[in-house]
Amino acid sequence: MITTNDIIREGHPSLRKAAEEVAMPPSIEDKETLNSLLEYVKNSQDPETAAEYGLRSGIGLAAPQINVLKRMIAVHVTDTKGELYSYALFNPKIISHSVEKAYLTSGEGCLSVDRPVPGYVPRYARVTIKGMDIDGNPVKIRLKDLPAIVFQHEIDHLNGIMFYDHIDQDKPLQPIAEAKPIER
């Protein structure tokens, strides 16, 4: 089981490296890693389990954040309509996206960043993601708003990109022109 102590923090060189594709079919070890990523985000959202194991709450986690440089992400998030998006994916890719941008009005946070980073992060408002599930079966997901933002954040980790790399350093809290503000 992954704990908060297993998550590497900003400044660690692995967070700035591109992760490798996962060979298909996935190995038992890769499946276990992917499963543990999803287990962490689920457990971190359960108040009792989080308190018992000292887990910091999160809605997404990428393998590079536990110092595994492989293309794996887990997301467990509910949209504004209450629909749950719970996915553990190998080799996720954005295959299409909207022209329209969106951003979280509260800004973004990250389990690998222990400090608040004020600023709006421009993201695509809608994305289509392709990847492989835990058994190596192809998955295609259309996402918008918060779930789309979370998947983009986690896929960035696979490419060595941190959320604050997208923030306008001169005007971090200036609303992003023609972008949809998303409340969280």
Rank of each mutant, 00 (worst) to 15 (best):
M1F: 15
I2F: 15
T4E: 08
D6A: 01
D6R: 01
I8D: 00
E10A: 10
H12D: 09
P13M: 04
P13W: 01
P13T: 05
L15D: 01
R16Q: 00
R16E: 00
K17T: 00
K17R: 14
A18C: 11
E20A: 13
E21H: 15
E21M: 15
V22T: 07
A23Y: 03
M24K: 12
P25C: 07
P25N: 09
P26D: 05
K31A: 04
E32T: 08
T33M: 09
T33D: 07
L34T: 08
S36P: 03
L37Q: 02
L38T: 05
K42I: 15
N43L: 13
Q45N: 15
T49G: 03
T49C: 06
T49Y: 07
A51I: 06
A51W: 05
A51Y: 06
E52K: 14
Y53S: 14
L55E: 10
L55C: 09
S57Y: 00
S57Q: 14
G58L: 08
I59D: 11
L61F: 06
A62K: 05
A63G: 08
Q65G: 11
V68K: 13
V68H: 10
L69D: 00
K70R: 14
R71G: 07
R71T: 03
A74P: 05
V75Y: 03
V75A: 02
D79T: 08
G82H: 08
L84F: 03
L84P: 05
Y87V: 05
A88P: 08
A88W: 04
N91S: 00
K93L: 14
K93Q: 15
I94R: 09
I94N: 06
V99F: 07
Y103N: 10
Y103L: 12
L104M: 15
T105F: 05
T105V: 14
S106H: 06
G107M: 06
G107F: 04
G107N: 04
G109D: 13
L111Q: 06
S112F: 04
V113T: 10
D114G: 15
D114I: 13
P116C: 03
V121I: 12
P122Q: 02
R123K: 10
Y124D: 12
A125F: 09
A125S: 13
T128G: 00
I129H: 05
K130V: 12
G131Y: 01
M132G: 00
M132D: 12
D133L: 02
I134K: 03
G136S: 01
P138M: 04
R142D: 14
D145L: 07
D145K: 10
L146E: 08
L146S: 09
Q152K: 10
E154A: 08
D156L: 12
D156E: 12
H157C: 10
G160W: 04
G160V: 08
F163V: 09
I167N: 02
Q169T: 14
Q169M: 01
D170N: 13
P172K: 01
L173Q: 12
I176C: 12
I176V: 13
E178V: 05
K180D: 00
P181V: 09
P181W: 06
E183Y: 11
R184Y: 11
